[in-house]
Design a protein around this nucleic acid. Structure first.
Length: 106
DNA sequence: CCAATGACCGTAA
DNA sequence: GTTACGGCCATTG
């Protein structure tokens, strides 16, 4: 599992949906590397086209400490509902199953 | 090479 | 619902 593996999976998250760090790690084939996913996203340049804002923690919370407001605005712009505690309902917006199907198809 | 470092997670109390 | 802790592992210095 490398940075590029993380980016490849994150790019498969559809607009208007989210995925947890651990979910991304699972779909990369390294289920225990959730922490590393955050490390990979942190390393992204500002102008990247990798949709890093669609990755939140497993409890549905925005845990980005660097640009939480930007992340929230981008999610809401796509139709993702973020409540006043920076939380998203993972039951409604989790894209892991969809990403899994996309990867399976290859 | 080795140790430290994370935008984390699951379990336990 | 909460806090605490150990495990995780590619990258970096």
């Amino acid at each position: 599992m490398k940075f590029q593996d993380v980016y490849r999976v994150v790019k498969l998250i559809p607009k208007g949906m989210v995925m947890s760090y651990s979910g991304v790690a699972r779909q990369c084939g390294s289920p225990r590397s959730a922490r590393y996913v955050g490390f990979a996203l942190h390393a992204l340049p500002a102008n990247t086209r990798v949709p890093w804002w669609r990755v939140i923690n497993a409890r549905g919370r925005i845990s980005n400490q660097y640009a939480p407001d930007k992340q929230r605005r981008r999610l809401e712009a796509e139709g993702v509902v973020v409540n006043d505690q920076m939380r998203v309902d993972m039951h409604l917006f989790d894209a892991e199953a969809i990403v899994y199907q996309k990867l399976k198809r290859t």
